[in-house]
């Protein structure tokens, strides 16, 4: 049973990541593979403030979201100059740079060894050290993020985003500063990813740069492409499917390494198949 709790917690964290990436890609049409970097910024900030600053977990997590937002502002402003496929390229570049910083800035990030001994969160005397309470925390945050994402879409801001996605030039004619809108949603999406990162750090209690690579960004992309772009429930659906694939591959008894690679083959094939069969995803509203 604790195994299921573990699974559900990981699922919740991945789902938040998927929703956050979907907020960007689904509504601007821009694929950002830099997402793992913001996931990492959230994780590292939370972990380091917790351990070295003695700060409360939730405050640390907020700091992580804030820092991710600032970095997203910087990187997003640069990337907003790039069109579609160059955007992806740029995002890969930034991901590598941030990952390099995680690996080389030894004195702060612990380098390749990462940060260990992260404690579970506690708030007003309630401790989330046990896995079950932590799962509840993850689910609560997932619901929050879900509502936030849905709310954003329903606002005028969200409608402008959709318009940008459909025809950026047309709406620019009306005087909308499309770059600012894209930048803002990018910051929001990256902030959500940082939230997931903080949760992850608190959960696994150990983080190192190897969790925040392009492989992880591709996983998030697969989640939203399968589930459906521009649909918040689609992001959750896609995550559920991919997590099931992970568990299934663990259970069929292949040696762990082969199973992991087989999963990658499946993700890759899924991406290709989805491009052929349903580019908008299972319940998505937007085709790339």
């Amino acid at each position: 049973m604790s195994y299921l709790i573990n699974l559900a917690s990981i699922f919740a964290i991945y789902a938040i990541l998927a929703i956050s990436m979907n907020s960007i890609t689904g509504y601007t049409g821009l694929v950002t593979l830099a997402h793992a970097a913001f996931y990492g910024i959230g994780a590292y900030t939370t972990a380091l403030l917790l351990i070295h600053g003695g700060v409360n977990f939730f405050v640390a997590m907020l700091a992580g979201i804030f820092l991710a937002g600032v970095v997203a502002l910087l990187i997003g402003s640069v990337m907003s100059k790039f069109r579609g496929d160059y955007y992806i390229l740029g995002s890969i570049g930034f991901l590598y740079i941030i990952n390099s910083i995680m690996k080389n800035w030894d004195s702060v990030t612990g380098g390749p060894l990462g940060v260990a001994g992260i404690t579970r969160p506690a708030l007003f005397g309630v401790s989330f050290a046990e896995n079950l309470p932590f799962l509840l925390l993850c689910l609560t945050l997932l619901i929050l993020v879900y509502w936030l994402a849905k709310w954003i879409v329903s606002t005028p801001f969200g409608r402008v985003l959709k318009a940008i996605r459909e025809d950026e030039e047309a709406i620019a004619v009306f005087g909308y500063r499309t770059k600012h809108f894209k930048l803002l949603i990018f910051m929001i999406g990256c902030g959500m990813a940082a939230l997931a990162g903080g949760l992850f750090a608190g959960y696994i209690r150990y983080i190192d740069p190897s969790t925040f690579t392009i492989v992880d960004s591709v996983f998030m992309l697969a989640c939203i492409i399968v589930g459906g772009l521009a649909n918040v429930r689609g992001a959750i659906l896609g995550t559920a499917i991919l997590v099931m694939i992970i568990e299934f591959s663990r259970l069929i008894g292949l040696p762990a390494d082969v199973a992991a690679q087989l999963r990658e083959v499946i993700y890759g094939v899924l991406l290709i198949v989805m491009m052929f069969w349903r580019p908008q995803g299972l319940i998505g509203e937007y085709k790339l």
Binding site: Y3, G114, I204, R205, I207, D208, S210, A256
Partner: peptide, 20 residues
Amino acid sequence: EDGKCNGADASQAGNKLINV
């Protein structure tokens, strides 16, 4: 359990050994 010489996998492995 396979730790794969990395923290995340080892953490999962440890979790399983301890909690399961």
